[in-house]
Amino acid sequence: MKIPKLLQAVLVLAIVYFGFILVFDIILDHVIPSSLLTMYMFFVVAGVFMVYTANEKSAKELVAPIKALVEDPSKKMIRNVVFVILPLLAGWYTYEKTSLSFEAPVELRTIHPAPPSSMKAYGKRYNVLKLENPFRKFEKTDPKKFKELIAEGAKVYIQNCHFCHGDKLDGKGPYAAGLNPTPANFQDVGTIAQLQESYLFWRIATGGPGLPKEAAPWISSMPIWQDFLSEEEIWQVILFLYDYTGYQPRSFGHE
């Protein structure tokens, strides 16, 4: 039996929708954000509509049941039912969307705000755009020393950072659960892999209070590490972060 076009379209949409949920929420165990799913479905609906109305025959078949529902006298009963259910559904959706709940409002932070062109730390001024890790050069010139520096950085990390950022650098340290926003996950391709070392230096040295207004709400609990760590220690720990995760810091110049 041939499935009517309208039903086909609805089925396709349902399969895609539940497919997303199945794949992300169950198979991959990472929920798909509802805001994203809504936008995704909007465009999937548009795509499905486009495919089914791309030619005249298919378009007619698609709207035929709807046309019949509205115009065919023999379908009076179904028509009445649908015309009652549809507004009710719309009402229910509106109510759901607007009713008050205990859920805190969605807050959105810009995770990587634009860095300032210069920053102050250790009583000095740094040009963030040109700042480079003084130890990076040893990677080529003196690999042994470089390894030692990384080991130093690892020590610094375990003594100071891992409580929140985790011993696997995945942002799941023992205290992470108590924090909102949650600590940065360095294993994620979207964090340090996208950043320059100077950016990390800025974020570590000035901490949450050093965030610009753009990164509001200003609630990061990252300490101002320049009060606790030396400049060298920060650069070492940056070496460690990249070494452990295997990412390369971003650089704008070609080598």
Binding site: L108, K120, R125, P212, K213
Partner: peptide
């Protein structure tokens, strides 16, 4: 509605000539 409402940072204030409250950056 679809994207978060972020209020951009206001422009930074200009250098003050008042030495009393001047930072070293402004002095430079």
């Amino acid at each position: 509605l679809g994207i978060p409402k972020i209020e951009p940072a206001p422009p930074p204030t200009e250098e003050k000539i008042d030495l009393g409250s001047m930072t070293i950056e402004q002095f430079v």
